[in-house]
Write a protein that binds this DNA or RNA. Structure first.
Length: 453
RNA sequence: GUGGUUGUAGUUCAGUUGGUUAGAACGCCUGAUUGUGGUUCAGGAGGUCGUGGGUUCAAAUCCCAUCUUCCACCCCA
């Protein structure tokens, strides 16, 4: 045990079985992204540390993995600095690169860097791992995948509509029932303004976001802690307890924030988005949820979150509109809207509910049993032909005992085995065995190809 | 960053108040079965008890440190 090697905290190996399942999810997401005309982008695992720092708040900076400079990484550090042991100050001296923390900031960097080559609006999707030096726990890893799609350079609410359509299609294809929650940051901003604390929008959203997790009382407590007066909190109550139909909710909101400028914009946007949504039929529930806030500070318009109806695991997909993502890199006035699927959590849900199709893990269709040199030579050309016909297949490389070979096929879930010995070779045929039913039949190579296609 | 928790075979776990050679199940390998996997039966391999130090005649067991696992908080996907 002490001698067996391991992997770093919060990381995982993906066995062929798990990877097959994960790819099943990725392929569905990827196909939907492509169908909606998003094009794939990849960025390097590492970015310049200066690109990453300061984008995720102070907490986020702490969670960045930094890469030690090559060579003498202490070259730039002076003796007094070394004595001081101020790691925060020293970090940029010994590390100039860091692992990406999400896909959005590298995307923003890409857009700004290549702004002259890009034709706007620009639609891209990106499926890559990200790294966070977080303390791992349930559903939380130091290396995990994000599946992002963003459109940047368009204010149209058609983009929001399409985001919802994509979400609906992905989860329909995955055979999962979900609820798509929609809100708008401008509504929240209107509320903050109305209760007299426009500058507390972030505190307000962070607190409201926890409503279904910690309950009303604790939310009030957080709001008080943030310095919001009891009067204002009481004033807020009807909004937090909002229910009923979309129209009821909108009426109530209108009464509440109808006089604030941002609030009105929020109402117009939300009503327009829902009027688009009304044009189509969706397989999943779509609801307006005023308590949906989402932590990310850069959202400015519509926000989305998806939760499973069948299992409690938190949000499995989220996104929203941001008006100034590239501003931090000096490119102003580019609005975008994006969505991110949490592949790892979707995996957990699928696994829990047993929703992966049976044949996900077995990509190999057939194995030739190896009886010896003469038989190998008889099988190899046929194997080649199967492969040319797009049938994933293999021959057991050694003429080991039959039992060992069958066991190999069995444990790798290979559905068919082909046997060719003296008898078969004389007739120029193969015995094709169905591993599941145990049935066997004598067939020609052509018949075998036909049976497996 | 804070609090708790875990560590013994490939895996999941037993292991008494400290006391002979540390066990089980599953998995793996071999055989029963020289052209047939899953079932059955028999046999076999596999452990520096996370690591380092301490207490003791004696430590998987007690103490300290450290690493690790998992969980909650903060934050987040």
């Amino acid at each position: 045990m002490a001698n067996t090697p391991g992997i770093p905290k919060g990381t995982r190996d993906f066995s062929p079985e798990i990877l097959a399942k994960r790819n099943y999810i990725f392929d569905i997401i990827k196909d939907v992204f492509k169908k909606f005309a998003y094009r794939q982008l990849e960025t390097p695992a590492m970015e310049n540390l200066s690109t990453l720092t300061g984008k995720y708040g102070e907490e986020g900076d702490k969670l960045l993995f930094k890469i030690l400079n090559s060579g003498n990484f202490l070259k730039k550090v002076t003796d007094p600095e070394l004595q001081e042991r101020d790691t925060k100050k020293m970090a940029h001296l010994v590390a100039e690169k860091g692992l990406r923390y999400d896909l959005t900031v590298p995307f923003a960097r890409y857009v700004v860097q290549h702004q002259n080559e890009i034709t706007f609006p620009f639609k891209r999707f990106q499926i890559q791992p990200v790294w966070r030096a977080d303390r791992p726990q349930k559903g939380r890893y130091r290396e995990f995948y994000q599946c992002d799609a963003d459109i940047i350079g368009s204010y149209s609410l058609i983009n929001e509509l399409e985001i919802v359509q994509m979400i609906d299609e992905v989860f329909t294809k995955l055979n999962l029932e979900v609820t798509i929650k929609i809100n708008n940051r401008k509504l929240l901003a209107g509320i903050a303004e109305r209760i007299g604390y426009p500058e507390k929008l972030i505190d307000l959203t962070v607190a409201i976001d926890k409503l279904d997790k910690i309950g009303l009382e604790k939310v009030y407590e957080e709001l008080r802690l943030a310095g919001i007066s009891d009067d204002a909190i009481n004033f807020l109550e009807p909004i937090l307890n909002l229910g009923g139909s979309f129209n009821d909710q909108m009426q109530c909101i209108e009464r509440f924030i109808g006089e604030t400028e941002t609030g009105v914009t929020g109402i117009v946007e939300t009503e327009k988005l829902f009027s688009y949504l009304d044009m189509f039929k969706f397989n999943n529930n779509i609801e307006l949820d005023l308590t949906l806030a989402r932590g990310l500070t850069y959202y400015t318009g519509a926000i989305f979150e998806v939760i499973s109806d069948e299992i409690q695991i938190g949000s499995i997909c989220g996104g929203g509109r941001y008006d100034d993502l590239t501003g931090i890199f000096g490119l102003k006035g580019v609005s975008g809207v994006g969505i991110s699927f949490g592949a790892d959590r979707i995996f957990d849900v699928m696994e829990n509910l047993n929703r992966f199709p049976e044949d996900t893990t077995s990509s190999v269709k057939l194995m030739f049993v190896n009886f010896g040199q003469k038989e190998e030579k008889y099988c190899l050309p046929v194997l080649q032909k199967l492969r040319q016909n797009g049938i994933n297949s293999e021959i057991f490389p050694d003429s080991s005992k039959m039992k060992k070979q069958m066991k190999y096929a069995n444990s790798n879930k290979i559905p068919y085995v082909a046997l060719a010995g003296e008898n078969e070779m004389q007739e120029n045929k193969f015995t094709l065995k169905n591993m599941e039913t145990g049935e066997q039949q004598l067939v020609t190579a052509a018949e075998m190809i036909k049976a497996l296609t």
